[in-house]
């Protein structure tokens, strides 16, 4: 995670980060924000995004270190390179924020999301739904005679693809956790 040892508040200086700082291209970035788990800290992070007009495409949060009261917020955001740098700097400025990592530029990372899909149907559609679920390695976590709830873990695009296939087969309800991400390697 800390291979590049990027300090809180610094902009990313990866040797492989050859993006043009003035480009107007909107990019998607996954940020890992390590925060002190004190009351209101999530509101501070979310308030920063809404107050300054930045996008939140996905957000997950949970305490990851119970003794140290540290939580990890994973935010997927989008913006031009200049806006992304500004988001990181603004996040770093929040007092209870300890570290900000841009997983998109700091090196390879894994991103996973969990989705629960309720599919209603009978006959062929029901069989087809189960067949596709097997292909996607989704688990059946609830079953009735006319419905399944599938659990699927994967990248956001894998979950999108699964949802697209399930829609004509009777997708009735859908819950997604948002992205959790970690840097690859030791």
């Amino acid at each position: 995670m800390n291979a590049l040892n990027i300090q809180k508040g610094m902009s990313s200086h990866s040797a492989y980060d050859l993006r043009d700082p003035n480009a107007e291209i909107v990019e998607s970035h996954t940020l890992a924000v390590l925060v002190e788990n004190e009351p209101g800290v999530l509101a501070r992070v979310i308030g920063l995004f809404s107050g300054r007009g930045y996008n939140i495409d996905s957000l997950t949060v949970a305490e990851v270190d119970h003794t140290g009261h540290q939580s990890r917020i994973t935010v997927v955001t989008s913006g031009t390179p200049a806006v992304i740098e500004q988001i990181k700097a603004q996040l770093g400025r929040i007092v209870p924020v300890h570290e900000v990592h841009d997983l998109t530029v700091e090196g390879p990372s894994v991103e996973r999301e969990l989705g629960l899909f309720k599919v209603r149907g009978q006959g062929d559609k029901r069989v087809e739904a189960l067949r596709i679920a097997e292909i996607f390695r989704a688990n059946v976590v609830d079953s009735t005679l006319e419905s399944f709830v599938f659990e699927l873990v994967g990248t956001p695009s894998k979950l999108d693809a699964f949802a697209d296939l399930m829609r004509p087969l009777g997708l009735a309800d859908l819950a997604r956790t948002g992205v959790a991400a970690l840097a690859r390697g030791a």
């Binding site: 610094m10 700082p21 003035n22 200049a82 500004q86 700097a89 770093g92 400025r93």
Partner: peptide
């Protein structure tokens, strides 16, 4: 002293 001031408006 504030990293968010740098490159915010003018590069």
């Amino acid at each position: 002293i504030d990293p968010s001031s740098i490159n915010k408006v003018i590069r």
